[in-house]
């Protein structure tokens, strides 16, 4: 308990202007087990924020709170406040379906639906009724593939199964699928952990381009990746947010001893 009081607020967790997501006092419980302790963090708009930390530190759990994916786990309970553009996302009046359309997600393992490439991307716009005509939908699909840098590679096999692509292509397809619902925020849960270095480079390049229009949060266990792509980094340890700040500052001049130990590779 003493720990909890001392690190009530992580170093550098002061409010940020302007912020897309503001989280205050977030606790997460899996049944009787507490997974996150009093997390306070602000996420800046149109930038990439990286969550780093050793495995089991709660970074993915926190990420899944941001679009309420934890709702699908019956024993999971979330307390505290998370605001998206001034709106509390745990407000009972807020619609989770709509929230998830605004906060897209890309998963650790590429999970294209066992359908054609075209259908994978058209799925979101269809269920949300974003297009009125077939032509509009076709255009949207092409735009999304273009943005994901995939259009040239798959142009002539749009109607072949998405599961037939390579791992890196599949993950970019999932990113294209996520942006097709025109989200404000994209959550990426270790998006490159299943990919080879070349594919990883392509996805990172894509993220860099996307940050012009989207707020991106990436969970990664690769510090190099966090340093390469993000502007802001938050370090989690044992369910607590230890330190958050400008990426360059975190990696060059960490203020917390544990952050320093982690980035210098003393544990992890």
């Amino acid at each position: 308990m003493e720990h909890q009081v001392v690190h009530r607020e992580a170093i550098g967790a002061e409010p940020l202007q302007p912020a897309t997501i503001i989280a205050r006092n977030v606790n997460v419980f899996y049944g009787a087990k507490q997974a996150l302790f009093n997390v306070d963090v602000d996420v800046p708009r149109n930038a990439i924020t990286a969550f780093i930390g050793p495995s089991g530190c709660g970074k993915s759990t926190f990420l899944r709170c941001l679009n309420r994916m934890n709702d699908t786990i019956p024993i999971c309970k979330v307390t505290g406040k998370i605001m998206l553009d001034g709106q509390d996302i745990y407000d009972p009046d807020l619609d989770v379906v709509e929230l998830r359309a605004r906060v897209g997600m890309v998963f650790q393992k590429p999970n294209p639906f066992p359908k054609s490439i075209y259908e994978n991307i058209a799925y979101g716009p269809r269920i949300h009724g974003l297009t009125r005509t077939k032509k509009e939908l076709d255009e949207l699909v092409e735009q999304c593939l273009e943005k994901a840098g995939l259009l040239k590679e798959v142009h002539d096999r749009m109607h072949e199964p998405g599961t037939g692509l390579s791992g890196g292509q599949q993950q970019r397809l999932c990113i294209a699928r996520a942006i097709a619902t025109r989200p404000d925020v994209i959550l990426m849960d270790e998006p490159c952990s299943a990919l080879d270095p070349i594919a990883t480079a392509k996805v990172e390049e894509l993220m860099d381009e996307l940050k012009e229009n989207y707020t991106i949060i990436i969970v990664t266990h690769s510090m190099q990746q966090a340093a390469r792509v993000s502007q802001r980094t938050a370090f989690f340890h044992l369910g607590k947010l230890v330190e958050v700040g400008d990426t360059r500052q975190i990696f060059t001049n960490p203020r917390d001893k544990r952050t320093q130990d982690y980035i210098t590779g003393r544990f992890g």
């Binding site: 679009n67 998830r100 997600m105 066992p114 996520a178 619902t181």
Partner: peptide, 12 residues
Amino acid sequence: SLREGSYGLGAT
């Protein structure tokens, strides 16, 4: 993971 992919896009 397929279900999560779909929920993540805001499907009911």
